[in-house]
Design a protein around this nucleic acid. Structure first.
Lengths: 291, 291
DNA sequence: CACTATACTTAAGATTAACTAAAGTATTAG
DNA sequence: CTAATACTTTAGTTAATCTTAAGTATAGTG
């Protein structure tokens, strides 16, 4: 489309021009750039040739800028400044202080286990655009695979997921909680249950744990939110198996029906395998793994 | 020396990046630049190396821009546009006064309001290479910002556009037109409508005007060309709100459904703010403002 | 009027960058 | 599976840029 061949000016040539305009003599300008006067002279001659307009003129034994040079000089200053900005941005990008990370976690991680770590990391890297999505584990892993998220903390998926790198992060003990007015008998008498919806990773862990204890698993209500499940137990709707952090927080914590846990929920940090290493993501991942 | 040596980017490398971002594939981009795909590939690899940030990634057999590339791409577009300005200035400097102006207008301006003014100006300055692009307002402003156009006459954008200088040019009254066989009742009975596509500046003006009148705005067909909309009304497909100049021209002019206008479309002359003053553009701009 | 320091420029040779053409590597489409 | 597509890599050539060293012109000094 637009074919009027542009002059192939280099940032270096523009730097030469800026330095030559600022220094009292070219020798000084050359020294401040760390090149020889000869290099500066040749570089400026080439710049003038490419722009195609006489920019310099001899006055005595000095070479001075002609009035026409002001347009070129303005252009040079602008491009040099813009390139400096770009270089600074690139430096921050390399060290992970800038950029964007789309983090997804289950609610227990964002609300309890890593809330403080995320807040600290956000304060420590103000240039970082950190976006947090809270959703169930399955949805998070789907988004990660599709590329809508960069980093996920969720319940360990059953079996290997192709294309993901998964690192163990922490383990949550799951306890059974009964409504306050109910007698806790043998596990065979437990229930009915309020729990996570069909398809939830945590529900699989709960079902397996209850099965080992010989407890029936009759589900009468479902929710993805542990706070909602906790309230259902408090209202006497049924029993629940929940991570202690969620069940025993707030003004009226639930009390465990049994001191030993029903199961263990293993939380992991996941990221795409094929993706180019991004320092910002690496940094956040290590913060989340450390706690 | 507080100088963290700047990357020696060349205008050519930045042009490569812009072309690569705009072309569907690198092969196409390379051809549009008149170089081989290999040259483009090597040039972009060198650019990436100098910036020091990964900006490309393979996706299937294509190489795509990573999100990080946007910063670099913005920089590239800006520097390329600035260099184009500089080159044009240099050309005028060399040739004395002749130059090139790339004018963009919406169709009503080129066809009706300023057709004669443009013809006169072309005759008056035979040395001027005046290029006219007719397109919708949004596309014109995009081209202007990118540097593909020097001067634009379009519908006034909503809100300030950064980097542009905008001067009011003229106002067009927009009237409602009904198919000839339709009874014109109260505005609440008007429609359905044929109008400009979603996103069009003019459409926003029309929608606001109809809303004030209490007329429903059910759209059954769209076109960017007022002639096409006029023909649709003539064929009885629906109602339209159009500038009088477009609707009431030709052999069979439409007649207004209501003598008072539905809205006002304000046309403006726009140009980039950062550009070096170009006498040729200045002259044309004042011709267009005067009429 | 030399004599010399200053301020650049030009020349020569080495290094580096950038191009084309051709071969290589995945990936997708039939 | 084969062919086509989309890039990248390699090899070899040409162009640009650097340094050192020599050249030119000017200004100040005795």
């Amino acid at each position: 489309m637009a074919q009027p061949n542009l002059p192939n000016l280099t940032v270096q040539q523009l730097e030469y021009l800026v330095a030559a305009a600022e220094g009292p003599t070219r020798a000084v300008a050359a020294a401040s750039l760390g090149v020889t006067a000869s290099a500066l002279s040749q570089g400026l001659a080439e710049l003038e040739r490419r722009v195609g307009v006489r920019i310099f003129e001899r006055q005595g034994r000095q070479t001075r800028l002609r009035p026409q040079a002001n347009e070129v000089l303005t252009h040079a200053r602008r491009v040099v400044a813009e390139t400096r900005d770009l270089a600074r941005w690139a430096g921050m990008q390399r060290t992970g202080q800038a950029g964007m990370v789309r983090l997804g976690t289950i609610d227990a991680v964002a609300v309890n286990h890593r809330a403080e770590a995320i807040r600290r990391h956000r304060r420590a890297t103000p240039g970082l655009d950190l976006r947090l999505t809270v959703a169930p584990s399955g949805a998070l892993l789907d988004s990660l695979l599709v590329g809508d998220l960069d980093l996920v903390v969720c319940v360990e998926p059953t079996g290997l997921v192709d294309g993901l790198v998964i690192s163990p992060c922490l383990e949550e003990l799951l306890y059974a909680y009964a409504p306050s007015d109910v007698h806790v008998g043998a596990p065979t008498e437990w229930g009915p249950w309020v729990t996570y919806p069909e398809g939830s990773h945590t529900r699989k862990v709960i079902a397996a744990g209850l099965s080992v204890l010989g407890a029936p698993f009759a589900v009468i209500a479902e929710s993805n939110q542990p706070e909602v499940l906790r309230e259902m137990v408090r209202l006497g709707m049924g029993w629940a198996v929940l991570p202690a952090a969620g069940a025993e927080a707030g003004a009226e914590p639930l009390t465990r029906a049994r001191s030993r846990p029903v199961g263990v929920r293993r939380l992991v940090v996941a990221r795409r395998a094929d993706v180019v290493t991004d320092v910002a993501v690496d940094n956040l991942a290590s913060v989340l793994l450390r706690g």
